[in-house]
Amino acid sequence: MSLTRVRSSAGSPVDGAPARSRREGSPRGRLRRIRADLVLLLAATPGLVYFLVFHYGALFGNVLAFQDYVPFLGIGGSRWVGLAHFERMFGDPLFWNAVKNTLLIALLQLVFFFPAPLALALLLNSIVGDTVRRFVQSVVYLPHFLSWVIVIALFQQMLGGAGVVNGWLSTLGMGGISIIGNPDAYGPLVIAQLIWKECGWATIIFLAALSQVDEQQYEAAVLDGAGWWRRVWHVTLPAIRPVIVLLLVLRLGEFLSVGFEQFFLQRQSVGPETGEVLETFVYYTGFANGDFGYAAAVGLFKGVIGVVLVYTANKVAHRLGEQGVYKS
């Protein structure tokens, strides 16, 4: 064998691969790849513009947190107040009431809503018949496409003072129950609404992860005499653990973002003492009362806490051997 042939088989530029990679890394090669993927890039452009304008571009609005912002004067003409809004925020009992309600709702969502899509995905994955599985999936997905106005109206018709449940109880000679408008039942009510509306849609990611589990592991577990629960505990959950950890980290990043529309529509029924969360507090402070600087300070505080939670949860995921959202 000649020396030239040996160098070729060893992976030198004779085989063409390194030369090809250099061509693809050149400006002409990158331009060629852009032309090849032009349709996909154009399809992704609206989403990219949305995030650039309404997410990254909106970050410049955080400067309002350090100003006594007046809309007629604009950012350039408004007076700078430094950290005055944050000092006011930490001494405001209304702010801490919103924080308390937000933390309570967030904990309820983490404990009851986060596991619900996983449980539903495991149930759907255990259904043998494809026809039945597709039908159940379609049924549980449908509430996601309903607006919160319709969902809350449905719950009002079912659980309100003149709703179906109280009407049925009155026919049985029993007293009615107070759920809608009851501050003590507000937390479980909003979690039940969230589970009914979003649980089916949230199972999509878990079902995609379950489809990647090796069937041979289930067969081996069956041969070892493992029942359904042991197969789930020792095969399914370890296989999809990276997905669970990833979604948990992302959920912790939105720990103080429990939602706006759902709570805005029901705030008056239970009163601000129970129904006020940080999103509604920012809305009423900024838009209803015109205190834009203070509202921006509260929103900035909430965002910083979210960043800290994501960073901390991601570090914990790395300690547990999972990849998390990003590599440190």
Results as ranks from 00 to 15, higher is better:
F90P: 00
N101Y: 05
F51S: 09
L83F: 13
L124I: 11
A119N: 05
P115Y: 07
G61H: 03
R30H: 06
D37S: 12
R23N: 01
L110C: 05
L40E: 10
F90T: 02
R35A: 15
A84V: 03
A36G: 09
V63F: 00
T45D: 00
T102A: 06
G91I: 02
V99L: 15
A36R: 14
F114T: 11
F51T: 14
L52M: 12
I105N: 05
L41P: 07
S26I: 06
L59E: 10
L103T: 08
G77I: 01
G82W: 01
P93H: 01
G91K: 00
R28Y: 10
G77A: 10
V53H: 00
A36H: 14
S26N: 05
W80I: 10
Y50M: 14
F60S: 11
E87C: 02
A58F: 04
F72Q: 12
F90Y: 07
I34P: 07
Y50I: 10
A119L: 13
K100S: 13
A65H: 00
A121S: 10
L124K: 03
A43S: 11
G25F: 09
S78E: 06
G129A: 13
N62F: 11
Q109M: 10
V132S: 12
F72H: 10
R30G: 08
H85C: 00
G82C: 01
F86E: 00
L122F: 07
V111L: 15
V136W: 04
G29A: 07
G129P: 05
A17C: 08
L94G: 15
G57N: 08
F112H: 02
L118I: 11
D37P: 03
L124Y: 02
F90E: 00
D92Y: 01
H55V: 15
L122A: 09
D37R: 14
S126Q: 14
E87K: 09
I127Y: 05
V63C: 00
G47Q: 01
F90Q: 02
A17P: 02
Y56M: 13
P27E: 08
R22K: 11
Y56T: 15
G129C: 08
L42A: 13
A98T: 04
V81C: 03
I105Q: 04
A116M: 15
V111N: 06
P93S: 08
D92S: 04
I34F: 13
R33P: 01
V81W: 00
K100G: 11
E87Q: 11
A121L: 01
F72R: 13
I105C: 02
R134K: 15
D68M: 02
T131S: 11
L118H: 07
Y50S: 08
F86G: 01
F112G: 04
P46Y: 03
R33W: 10
L103D: 07
L64K: 03
A43N: 06
R88P: 03
L123N: 04
R28P: 02
